[in-house]
Design a protein around this nucleic acid. Sequence first.
DNA 1: ATGGTAGCGCTGCTA
Length: 261
Amino acid sequence: MKIATWNVNSLRARLGRVTEWIELHQPDVLLMQETKCKDAAFPAEAFQSLGYETAHHGISQWNGVAIVSRVGLTDIRSAFFDEQIDEVGEARVISATCGGVRLYSVYVPNGRTVGSEHYERKLLWLDHLLADLAASCKPEDRVGIFGDFNVAPEDRDVWDIAQFDGATHVTEAERAAVTRLCEWGLRDAVRLLHPDEDALYSWWDYRSGSFHRGWGMRIDLGLISVPLCERLTFAAVDREARRGPSPSDHAPLVIEVDLAR
DNA sequence: ATGGTAGCGCTGCTA
């Protein structure tokens, strides 16, 4: 099963690129973030015509998350189990079962500046993600959380850690929240297969020619349970999708698991 | 030089 995650930065602005990418790469499941549309504006037909079922959670022009799947799409759940965090006018998480795998598509709050209410909310949101996971799944299940975490797990996951002194995305508290997901039983798929590689970035600022200068961050992650880790055959960022006219500022992350193994 | 770009929607916010 090929699973991809992509922060598309507006699905309406990016639909052509996204459908072209699907046709080229043939993912079984694509998890999207920042669709930036309400459910009524979600272009379900564009995915259905390619053979995919769709589930979308969007309630404004901000955020918005989706799952499109050609291997089944059942038990769709928008927001968190307790609905305390995600339903305060936001749409940052949707989960569903696809081909026997429980999948989350998450758009973790950015956090803006360290110590702000937005930052505290980001930490709380990540705690709710763990609580939701623990209430819904067991570590021995086939389960994965994919999306834009807005956290770089290690210093080598940003192009120049000196630029991030006192900044969000790299603080101990944010990284500890991701570590707690791993302590529950998830593993960072890219790191499993590429333990020694640096510059495995998934996001580059639109400004300053960051992409071509190699000024990126690895903030889009696929965290998968051990039963999936044991069947993991591929994990990589498709940097080509960041090139050319009108790209998203994020590139897709693709993993493959051999579920017959 | 405290910059730059993109998307939202129409004024400035968010990232």
